[in-house]
Amino acid sequence: MSTSQIEFHRVSFRYSDDQPWVLDDVSFTINKDEWVAIIGHNGSGKSTMAKLMNGLLMPDKGDIIVDGIKVTQKSIWEVRQKVGMVFQNPDNQFVGTTVRDDVAFGLENRGIKREQMLRRIEESLKAVRMSDYLLHEPHRLSGGQKQRVAIAGVLAIAPDVMILDEATSMLDPKGRKEILHTINEVKQLNKLNLITITHDLNEIIATDRVIVMNRGQVWLETTPRELFSDEQKLLEIGLDVPFVAKLANQLKDLAIEIKPQPLNQKELLDALWTLYFNK
């Protein structure tokens, strides 16, 4: 068994022949069990990459390999069994008339038996803490709750990879927090490849690796820690670092070096305490 889950080999893509390339000669590998963030500002091609990963779009040039299978028109159903996706708009991906029916949708499509379906629905709703809302209609749920149901719908089909395509960008701060919490929990409980696509750098803090996209090309592959230490570079392509990183970077300018680069408030606070005691 190879360790790679998703491979892009010199992939190029554009929406039609007379339009510019959205992705231009992109290559990278995502390993099994890795949590990878793909970031970039609007129009950098990051959402297109997600749609290429499960065959919603087909590359014009190059190959995409998912778990050893090349993505082609013939293999898309096999690939979609392995790759689940949560989209941006909470309303427009809710197919069922109730929470239960919606989680069932993916299972129904795969012809899974009813008894098994009921069990999987229960399990996956429990994982996102939505069990109490089994028979609720979508218009009685908040945006965050709808996205949690969407995550449950993906978990129910037990894929190897879950792609979150700007899944939090249409939510209020509370809903966003809810989803990030759910994702962290889900990641801990399941053996799952996570791919977070976002332009909010707060969401990449817990990830293992970051791929930065700019103008349809891989601009940088790095870790969140390293990424945050180079604020200037990020500003160049129109991305803003989180507050903690900003503070640490400005302290560095004042010759107060904090090592390693803090990812969250706790790390920064601990570092500051250490600094204070060592003075």
Partner: peptide
């Protein structure tokens, strides 16, 4: 119309390929 397009994409991503070989939750 925009919703319809996104919904169709989400349905496809969740493995919808018509009524053939589909099971049903509601009985």
């Amino acid at each position: 119309f925009k919703r319809a397009e996104e919904l169709a994409m989400a349905m496809e991503a969740r493995g919808y390929q018509g009524g053939e070989g589909r099971t049903k939750l509601r009985e």
